[in-house]
Amino acid sequence: MTKIPAAASLLVLPPSAQPLSAAARAYNLQLTRIDKLKSQLAELDALGQLHRQELHGAIDPLRRQLAQGQRELALALDGFLQGKELSRGQCDTARAVLCQIARHLVESGGPAGEGMRELHDRHSPRTLAQIKQDA
């Protein structure tokens, strides 16, 4: 016969003092790892936000400068098209470039696009309204 231990020899441990099984230790390790990864993601997100703000701060003035340069180029091409310095082929090329730049400036909006609709429509066989309607 097997001997049954006496009730007095049973020891009751609180849950915090009981040893964890291997699976429970692995689970807790993964939870710790997940918490660390979440904090790293939050840190990367904050760095990304800061980078985007700095990038916009650096790029926006350059975009405005580009738009202003394109506007000046379109106006210069308009001046050349008014004169007699360009050959027929050069006029066709200048007209195509002028219309492309003017259309881009109008679609982009902003102060550089002011007056570009009229400039485009004056040199293009199709107005911007007709092009928009066709699209």
Rank of each mutant, 00 (worst) to 15 (best):
L11R: 15
L37E: 09
A96E: 06
L66R: 07
L55E: 08
A135F: 15
G89W: 12
D35M: 01
R126W: 14
T2W: 09
L29T: 15
H56M: 06
A23S: 15
R52I: 04
E114W: 10
C91S: 04
A22N: 13
L10T: 11
L66K: 05
R63C: 04
I101L: 08
A7T: 12
H56I: 03
L37S: 01
P61H: 10
Q82S: 14
V12W: 15
K84R: 15
Q100E: 09
S108D: 00
D45I: 07
L13V: 07
V97P: 04
G110Q: 02
T93I: 12
L105H: 04
P14E: 11
G110H: 05
G109M: 03
A58G: 00
L75Y: 07
V106W: 02
S87K: 13
R103F: 13
M1I: 01
R126L: 11
S9G: 08
P5M: 09
L11E: 13
A129M: 11
M1K: 00
P19L: 08
R52K: 08
A8M: 03
L11C: 12
E107K: 05
Q40L: 09
I59W: 14
A17R: 15
Q53N: 08
L47H: 00
G69V: 04
V12S: 13
A7H: 13
E72H: 13
S21W: 15
S9H: 13
L119T: 02
A58L: 01
V106L: 02
A58N: 03
D60A: 03
G57P: 06
I4W: 15
T127G: 03
Q130I: 12
C91L: 01
H120L: 02
A22K: 14
G57Q: 13
I131V: 15
R122T: 06
A24P: 08
A46G: 01
R71A: 14
E118F: 09
L50H: 00
L77S: 03
A76L: 10
R95F: 09
Y27P: 00
D60Q: 03
P61N: 04
R103I: 05
V97R: 04
I34H: 07
A42K: 00
Y27R: 04
A135M: 06
Q130V: 10
K84W: 15
G110W: 11
Q130M: 10
L41S: 00
G89A: 04
